[in-house]
Design a protein around this nucleic acid. Structure first.
Length: 501
RNA sequence: UCCCCGAUAGCUCAAUUGGUAGAGCGAGCGGCUGUUAACCGCUAGGUUGUAGGUUCGAGUCCUACUCGGGGAGCCA
């Protein structure tokens, strides 16, 4: 009696006959034996076909099945160390659902433009499959953290009448003839909701029309934003700390194998323990101007130049192999390695060009300006755990942040910088609860007060201290997975000028 | 908005620096009973991003444009 099952459950069926349904991931055929690696959404399994009387009716067709053909395979499960995943299926029957032709993504290297154009197929590949699973777990960890700690989910609107952050980066949409904007944040709306439920959060997509074409930017990204009534800055920071730690712990617990497959350095994730570092903006400014930052960048320059020299040599050697008289597969492999080495090479050269500029920016950092991307990278790299940077100058931050009552030049806010140079993943603050101060700030920033009347009502009717933060979800996934680029952290990335597929 | 790099077969890349456009993968056919990006042989596959220019001759040099990649600024 055959049983339908999935690859992740094969361990329960050793010695029995089962049927798997999936897609051809790769094949290797010999004259009388064929190996079909089947992918079924839960894992990979090697199916072994031997040519004999009982397999004669499907063997010839099955052994030639192209990549990504869909099929059902029936066979006997056995444990085998040689097979991917540790189990294999000795096939006794193959039913082809669809024989595919010309699947574009091959097991060989592809360029990023091509892969992005085939994103709908690309995420069938192993690496993308691992990332998406980690992302799904991170979503669950986020919801669980808040749901288990007394927070109420409040979904905030995507059509928003006014700016939450920067007016220049809003997507404008025609809403029955009226201009509205796609939400950049749910923050103002969760502030209102926390006065009803005390502890709330929202988690959904946000939109920013930033003209940025870098690895750290998406024009559509997900953000999770908790908001807590009667909470001060320290309390909010502690929530952020527990929250981030809970996500990291969960991913480490459930996805150690995937992280290893992704070449993620596990130790640096394991080091994400309480307490995270806390420094003020003013201390950060001193750090940037100080000898440690300078030393870090100078060492960087030396190390990167040394690495470039190393790569020059390596490329030359590999090139000689690739063009030499060796075996074809050796030449192939060398040629592929040359491509990788050249990519690293040109990336390093760009970085080397930028280092002097970054040094200058850091050394000449003036109190009162916002931390730039390179500044954040320096600060995060000078620490081995995430760093909270608090108390920024108030006029570089949003109007709703609470003025520090002990120092009116700064706000009670914080950014969380993830380690390993990833940079900012959280921005948060205590919110200004005083109506007059908030009005003064809206006026100072030249914002249209009439758009914010509903928000000002929160300061008119039972205003209390409160605060919260927003975590950029894709940046967090990229950090967890060790991705260089945000585009791999979301199924269908939306970037400046790019919205296909 | 600015700076750097790139565009050659379906894909990833070569082309001795201005002299007959090649290889691997993928596809098709054949061979091989334990393969791990399998391997071996054969076949098909090209208006070298677009438009001009220089030249006896341009994939290669020049100009403009288009598209892509990376970065700066700005940001989560």
């Amino acid at each position: 009696m055959e049983t339908k099952t999935t690859i992740d459950r094969l361990c329960d069926h050793v010695g029995r006959t089962v049927t798997l349904s999936g897609w051809v991931y790769n094949t290797r055929a010999s004259g009388k034996i064929a190996f079909i690696i089947v992918r079924d959404g839960t894992g990979l399994c090697q199916c072994v076909l031997e040519r004999n009387d009982r397999t004669a009716d499907f063997f010839d067709d099955a052994r030639k099945l192209p990549q990504e053909s869909s099929l059902e395979v029936t066979g006997v499960v056995s444990a085998d160390e040689r097979a991917v995943g540790g189990y294999e299926l000795k096939a006794t029957g193959v039913h082809v659902v669809q024989a595919t032709r010309d699947y574009p993504i091959t097991p060989k290297p592809h360029g990023i433009e091509f892969l992005m154009r085939h994103r709908h197929l690309w995420f069938r590949s192993k690496r993308q499959w691992h990332i998406m699973r980690i992302r799904a777990t991170a979503v669950d960890a986020i919801r669980r953290f808040f749901n288990d700690n007394g927070y109420i989910l409040v979904d905030t609107p995507i059509f928003a009448p006014a700016a939450g952050e920067e007016i220049q980066t809003l997507f404008k949409v025609d809403y029955f003839g009226e201009p509205v904007f796609l939400a950049q944040t749910g923050q103002l709306y969760v502030e209102a909701a926390c006065m009803s439920h005390r502890k709330v959060y929202c988690f959904g997509p946000t939109f920013r029309a930033e003209k940025s074409k870098t690895r750290r930017h998406l024009s559509e990204f997900w953000m999770v934003e908790p908001e807590i009534a009667y909470a001060g800055l320290d309390e909010v920071i502690e929530v952020a700390e527990d929250f981030v730690r809970s996500i990291v712990e969960r991913v480490l617990r459930d996805h150690r194998d995937e992280l290893i497959e992704l070449d993620r350095n596990i130790e640096s994730l394991e080091a994400v323990k309480k307490p995270f570092y806390r420094i003020t903006y003013t201390e950060a400014a001193e750090l940037l101007r100080g000898p440690k930052a300078r030393e870090l960048l100078e060492n960087d320059l030396v190390e990167k130049k040394a690495r470039v020299a190393e790569l020059d040599k390596k490329i030359e050697e590999l090139d000689a192999v690739a063009k030499g008289g060796g075996k074809q597969w050796q030449k192939d492999k060398a040629a592929a390695e040359v491509i990788v080495a050249r990519e690293e090479h040109s990336e390093l050269e760009e970085q080397i060009r930028n280092i002097p500029h970054h040094m200058e920016l850091a050394a000449n950092f003036r109190w009162g300006s916002d931390l730039g991307g390179s500044d954040e990278t320096i600060i995060s790299r000078l620490h081995d755990r995430p760093v909270f940077v608090t108390h920024y100058p108030k006029y570089v931050k949003a109007f709703y942040m609470r003025e520090d009552r002990n120092d009116d030049r700064v706000t009670e806010n914080f950014d969380l910088l993830a380690p390993e140079g990833v940079g900012e993943i959280i921005g948060g603050s205590a919110r200004e609860e005083d109506l007059d101060r908030l009005l003064a700030r809206i006026k100072h920033d030249g914002l249209p007060q009439e758009d914010y009347e509903w928000y000002l009502d929160l300061r008119r009717y039972g205003s209390v201290p409160h605060g919260g933060f927003g975590l950029g979800f894709e940046r967090t996934v990229a950090w967890l997975c060790g991705l260089k680029h945000l585009r791999e952290s979301i199924a269908y990335p939306r970037m400046m000028g790019k919205f296909y597929p």
